[in-house]
Amino acid sequence: MTLKVEDLSVSFPTGPVLAGISLALERGEIVGLTGTSGAGKSLVAEALAGALPGDATRTGRITVDGALAPPHMVALAPQRLDALDPLAPVGRQIDRFARLAGRSADVPGALASVGLPATTARLYPHELSGGMARRVLLATALATGADWIVADEPTVGLDEAAAGRILSLLADLAASGRGVIVISHDLIGLARIASRVVILRQGRHVETAPAHAFDGLGSCLREDFSRALWQAQLAPDAPC
């Protein structure tokens, strides 16, 4: 099965903010999405999940094997930790997302699939660490049973070890047959788990590069902007 995004554009009353974004994703594959801040990465995630703000207008096609994708086919694990309801324990929140998708919730199963113990179900969001909260956000997306997951900045704010665990978890999700889009500034991490990386700049598609292009100084990357983005992550800190 292939999820295709063709010529996706999003505009607000103030003007267009995304134009001509295209990407394809197979089940079992991870595709990375990166770009500088304000490039429109989170907007792509919201457009895919059908969660755009009310005043946004979307054009373009989102299809699965050629047929138009029904609403809410793509589950979103949002960037903001406050996307978890502060007044509900984790278990109830996972249950809500399962019910929205018309499923009965397997809370311990959903927690186990993101590497959390079943006892996490009793905790409230303020009792979770940053890494645990990111995993719970992923669990809410997984509880919907969606085959396609968009993880928006799943490693932001985490230390290297915690970020590594989240990336491994996303790789496991893809290995279990889901198609995963990972939005991140961390090109090194993306290149490690994704097969391809889509690069955006100011709401426009720059290029889609294979993961192996992010090597050395990035000489296999087609665009100067992509190379600059990659090299910026490689540059060592200036000596004091």
Binding site: E46, A49, G50, A51, P71, H72, A75, L76, P78, R80, D82, A83, L84, D85, P86, R96, F97, L100, A101, L137, T140, T144
Partner: peptide, 13 residues
């Protein structure tokens, strides 16, 4: 208007 409600809306609430 909170991110929590938008997260639920994104999944059909």
């Amino acid at each position: 208007d909170s991110p929590a409600a938008r997260h639920l809306s994104a999944h059909g609430a």
